[in-house]
Design a binder for these strands. Structure first.
Length: 459
RNA sequence: GGCUGGGUUGCAGAAUGGUUAUGCAGCGGCCUGCAAAGCCGUCUACGCCGGUUCGAUUCCGGCCCCAGCCUCCA
């Protein structure tokens, strides 16, 4: 039985989809004004894993991940760059897709963009006004009247009065209540704008997700996810908007992914202590980064360090070494217990570290069979299959182990040295043979002799 | 201050009321021309104080510490 930790109830719950056999999943994606950093990568990889596992579990999954392509940061960045907003967002959407692809993240079923869903956004704001949950302010903005929505604060575990203590009042605010939040921002000169019954402007951040999620998945759907930092106010506001507008429950299960941290501190744009995905990919292979992310539970903080990434690389190398000499087999064979253990781990709130431990048990059993490739092949097939559920182990083992040349020796240069060494070995010239091996080692190339055959891999 | 997570062996990181997590690193052995890889064996735990229990790292209470949210942020 699949159990998921629901941030709303703050406990693990048995997962039952609204429509039998179908899961409707919405995840808050990126605001596209800059490159993805590791925090974004974690959310993308985690929900990719969730979607893959749910599908493997037999559910039909509709996975929606939105793109925020209009907001203050985008407008400001475009202004700084002297760049057209559309060009800026197109550029970073492209970059995001490249990063996601590198990390083995499958495209969601749809990636709705705020600017392409303006009618539905306007419709929802209209409904909220009609129902008395929203009001137009003197400055042309439209606000959500938080006190009108009784359950407000349920997700974040706060009461309105608690929230009010911390609320900041900006100069020149036109809100009736400092906790109210903006649904529609009146256009300022030179800014992108859309026509509305309340005057030209653009949507607030929260409304787009309410509009797009309910448009794509219906008023009431199964799982809504995002980073931990979206819990409040973003997701709280989504609930308020959506439930007030539709009159139905919005989401059954809320999933929040923990932060990527650097030196025990949240990696974030405002602190400036972040690594972009592309920076990290210059130093580690994408699959290593994916392993690093899945190597800890999705709700735990994940501390980034070179050592941890190096550890992920070593672990992944061990898995690939076990697959290296196996002939591909189609069937998993007598490996049902591994499948069961794997599923038991994943069923427990997507416990990927536990699932990975099962892959290592499989690896040990493959290695024990050693030269008996025929016996090991079905185990190898199971290892690859289960790895695939996590989006891992789908590369050619030899290609993964050889890595890429970077600024070191090329494949051809290595082959030449390996051939020279094999020649020396044939002549039992151990001095020369070991010298060549040390030379390669110094260049980060590791040799393995199996009888007269030598294989190599980059460290 | 309020709220939400969390404190596990050298590092990373799970589970669990009594019995091996797992990976990396270490140590001993096997294998190897020597290595590497692999296999076998092995060492280092469960923030503090109480309580429940035959028995608690695991449940309960209190405390300390860390991170995050309460303001844009995945």
């Amino acid at each position: 039985m699949l159990q998921i930790y629901n941030s709303f109830s703050r406990q693990k719950e048995a997962f039952t989809p609204i429509a039998p056999g179908q899961v409707r999943l919405y995840v808050c994606g990126m605001t596209v004004y800059d490159y993805c950093h590791l925090g974004h990568a974690r959310v993308m990889v985690v929900f990719d894993m969730v979607a893959r596992y749910l599908r493997d579990r037999g559910f039909k999954v509709t996975y929606i991940r939105n793109i925020t392509d209009i907001d203050d940061k985008i407008i400001n960045r475009a202004k700084e760059n002297g760049e057209d907003i559309g060009a800026l967002t197109a550029r970073f959407i492209q970059a995001m897709n490249e990063d996601a692809h590198a990390l083995g993240v499958l495209p969601p079923d749809a990636e709705p963009r705020a600017t392409q869903h303006m009618p539905h956004i306007l419709e929802m704001i209209g409904t909220l006004l009609e129902k008395g949950y929203a009001y137009p302010a003197k400055n042309g903005d439209v606000y959500y009247r938080v006190r009108q929505f009784k359950p407000y604060g349920a997700l974040s575990g706060k009461t309105l009065d608690e929230l009010k203590i911390g609320a900041r009042v900006e100069v020149g605010e036109a809100k009736d209540d400092p906790l109210d939040f903006v649904l529609w921002k009146a256009a300022k000169p030179g800014e992108p704008q859309w026509d509305s019954a309340w005057g030209p402007g653009r949507p607030g951040w929260h409304i787009e997700c309410s509009a797009m999620s309910t448009e794509c998945l219906g008023s009431h759907f199964d799982i809504h996810g995002g980073g931990m930092d979206l819990k409040f106010p973003h997701h709280e506001n989504e609930i308020a908007q959506s439930e007030a507008a539709t009159g139905e429950p919005f989401v059954n299960t809320w999933m929040h992914v923990g932060f990527v941290q650097l030196d025990k501190e949240k990696m974030s744009k405002s602190l400036g202590n972040f690594f972009t995905v592309r920076e990290v990919l210059k130093r580690f292979e994408p699959e290593v980064v994916r392993y690093f992310i899945l190597g800890s539970h999705y709700r735990s903080p994940l501390d980034y360090s070179d050592d941890t990434l190096q550890g992920a690389k070593s672990a992944l190398t061990r898995l690939y070494l076990a697959l290296k000499d196996l002939t591909p087999a189609r069937e998993g064979g007598a490996s049902a217990t591994y499948e069961e253990k794997f599923q038991a781990a994943m069923d427990d709130d997507f416990n990927t570290p536990g699932a990975l431990a099962v892959l290592f048990e499989l690896t040990r059993d493959i290695n024990k069979l050693g030269a008996d490739g025929a016996a090991a092949a079905p185990l190898g097939a199971t290892l690859r299959r289960l790895g695939g559920v996590l989006g891992l182990l789908q590369s050619d083992p030899r290609m993964f182990l050889r890595g890429s040349a970077d600024d070191s020796l090329s494949d051809a240069q290595i082959e030449v040295l390996v051939a020279k060494r094999s020649e020396a070995r044939r002549n039992k010239n151990w001095g020369e043979s070991d010298r060549l091996r040390d030379e390669l080692k110094a260049q980060g190339v590791i040799l393995e002799d199996t009888g007269s055959q030598t294989t190599w891999r980059r460290q």
